[in-house]
């Protein structure tokens, strides 16, 4: 298990993405899956950076691991901000006409579509979002 904890600010977006990318490079996943997992991860960390904390700020913690039997990628994103379960948000209607297209909720919808499993729990005043993707 590898871990990176940084202040949850826009300036650390690239460092957080790099942390994931460097680990994905040795995952054996194909290029389409790599891109999709990066998108799923971006949506989650951007949510934390933008919404988890008020003016005082706080940290974001990312944990990445490769699990065996069956082989899968494990990503966990933690923050100690306001309790927020992004999975409770209703999915956007992707069949709505463009005029009626709501702009919100698209990111978390994509994350749920991309990853095999996305779960949320609140523990020790921490939001914990766990994403798992099988490596085939």
């Amino acid at each position: 298990m590898e871990k990176l904890e940084l202040p949850a600010v826009e300036e650390n977006f690239a460092a957080l993405m790099n942390f994931l990318e460097e680990r994905l490079d040795r995952s054996g996943l194909d290029s389409e899956n790599l891109m999709l997992i990066k998108i799923a991860f971006e949506e989650i960390i951007v949510n934390v950076i933008h919404y988890a904390y008020g003016a005082d700020g706080g940290s974001i913690c990312v944990l990445i691991d490769f699990l065996e039997d069956p082989k899968r990628l494990f990503i966990e994103v933690r923050d100690r901000g306001v309790p927020f379960n992004p999975l409770e948000r209703a999915d956007p209607d992707i069949h709505a006409s463009v005029e009626e297209r709501a702009i919100g909720g698209l990111g978390i919808f994509m994350t749920k579509k991309i990853m095999d499993s996305v779960t949320y729990r609140r523990e020790d005043e921490t939001n914990i979002l766990t994403m798992i993707e099988a490596i085939r």
């Binding site: 971006e42 463009v98 990111g107």
Partner: peptide, 17 residues
């Protein structure tokens, strides 16, 4: 283009709307 997240998609929906 090799990567587009929901932020980019929102810009495209915006173009249409």
């Amino acid at each position: 283009l090799k990567y587009i997240s929901s932020a980019g998609l929102r810009a495209i929906v915006f173009a249409k709307q």
